[in-house]
Amino acid sequence: MAKVLTVDPQDVSQLVHRHQAEVWRYVRFLGANAELADDLVQEAFLQLLRAPYEDQGEPARRAWLRKVAQNLYVKSFRRPPFALVDLDRIEAVWLDYAQGDGGNESLAALRECLENLDGRARQAVRLHYEERRSRREIGDRLELGEQGVKSLLRRSRELLKKCVERARREA
């Protein structure tokens, strides 16, 4: 029989620690900035803990939290930020990435793949994601136009995605 979640502070703390990273990553993936993601995650947990929610186990709980956070994100816009017909595709991409552990393994694989990325792709990724340089600044450094930087970053992400998928298969 499913049990109702308690609001024992210790349980709340453990529950939040178990799921917060995944929900946060999910809403970031949807497009929320870091600060909005904090708020959305908080609201999703509050709904989980305040509503008469019957706990059906961890996978269902994770899906429930993601769905609530997604709804809150969509509702925060006057118009939906993406086509609602994309929702199935979004869910499929997420589940493929998260692999049941909230994305921890994929993230670890990505770090490894980054270590193997060479040359200008590595420089572009580093300048964009670690140093938060604009495309123009990166272009000046790599002697590329802004469009060229955009293409280089997209190609790099494509390479990295394939590398992550390969690493996970091998693992």
Binding site: V7, P9, V12, S13, V16, H17, Q20, A21, W24, R25, R28, F29, G31, A34, D38, V41, Q42, F45, L46, L49, R50, D86, R89, I90, V93, W94, Y97, G103, S106, L107, L110, R111, L114, V125, Y129, E130, R132, R154, R157, E158, L160, K161, V164
Partner: peptide
Amino acid sequence: WDDRIIDSALQEVGGQQPPDLSARILIAL
């Protein structure tokens, strides 16, 4: 969306990591 998932993961690797929200959730609760 495939591109976005790697983009958001790279943002995380670059320093934007999930925070610990347990204290604020407990207080709000």
